[in-house]
Amino acid sequence: MVGDQHPLSLLFGLFSVGILPQRKGLENYTAGSGFTLLGFTDHSSLQGFLCFTVFLAIYLVILTSNSLIALITAMDSSLHSPMYFFLRNLSFLEICYTSVTLPKMLLGFLTEDGRISFLGCAAQMYFLVSLGSIVCLLLVAMAYDRYTAICDPLHYSLIMSRGLCIRLVLGSWLVVTPVQAGQTYQVFTLPFCASHDLHHFFCDVPPLLELACADTFWNEVMLYTIILVFVMLPFFLIVISYGKIIRVILKMPSALDRRKAFSTCSSHLGVVSLFYGSATVIYLKRWSRDSADTDKYLALFYTIVTPMFNPVIYSLRNKEVRIALNRLLSIK
Rank of each mutant, 00 (worst) to 15 (best):
T225M: 11
K251C: 10
I249W: 06
G243E: 02
V248R: 14
Y242P: 05
W218D: 11
L250F: 10
T225H: 11
Y224Q: 06
I238R: 05
I246T: 08
I226L: 10
L233I: 11
K251L: 12
E220Y: 15
Y224K: 06
L250V: 12
T216K: 09
K251F: 07
M252Y: 02
E220I: 12
I227T: 12
Y242I: 03
V239L: 15
M222Q: 14
V248C: 10
V229G: 00
T216M: 07
Y242E: 01
V239A: 11
L223Y: 15
L223T: 10
T225A: 15
I240G: 07
L250S: 12
I226N: 09
K244D: 03
N219M: 05
F235W: 12
L233G: 04
I226R: 01
Y224E: 07
F235R: 09
N219K: 02
F230C: 07
F217L: 15
F235S: 12
A214V: 08
P234S: 00
I227N: 09
L237M: 11
W218N: 13
L233Y: 07
F235M: 13
A214P: 03
I245C: 02
M252T: 01
W218Y: 15
L237E: 07
P234W: 00
I240L: 12
F217P: 05
L228S: 13
I226E: 04
F235H: 11
Y224D: 08
N219C: 11
V229C: 09
P234K: 01
V248I: 08
A214R: 07
S241E: 00
I226K: 03
V231G: 12
K251R: 13
F217C: 13
R247K: 11
I240K: 13
L228G: 13
G243T: 04
T225K: 09
R247M: 02
W218V: 11
I249Q: 00
F230L: 07
L237W: 03
M222L: 14
V239Y: 04
M222F: 15
I245R: 03
L233E: 02
N219Y: 02
Y224H: 14
V221H: 08
K251P: 03
R247N: 03
V231K: 12
L250Q: 11
F235P: 04
I249E: 06
L223R: 15
C213L: 13
A214C: 11
I246Y: 05
V229R: 04
V229Y: 06
I249L: 04
S241D: 13
W218P: 07
Y224I: 03
M222P: 04
F235K: 09
L237P: 02
E220T: 12
A214L: 05
I240P: 01
M232C: 13
I240A: 14
F235Q: 10
D215V: 01
I246V: 15
N219W: 00
V229P: 05
R247L: 02
G243D: 00
F230E: 06
V231W: 13
F217Y: 15
V239C: 11
F217T: 15
T216V: 15
K244T: 04
Y242S: 01
V231H: 14
I246C: 03
K251W: 04
Y224G: 07
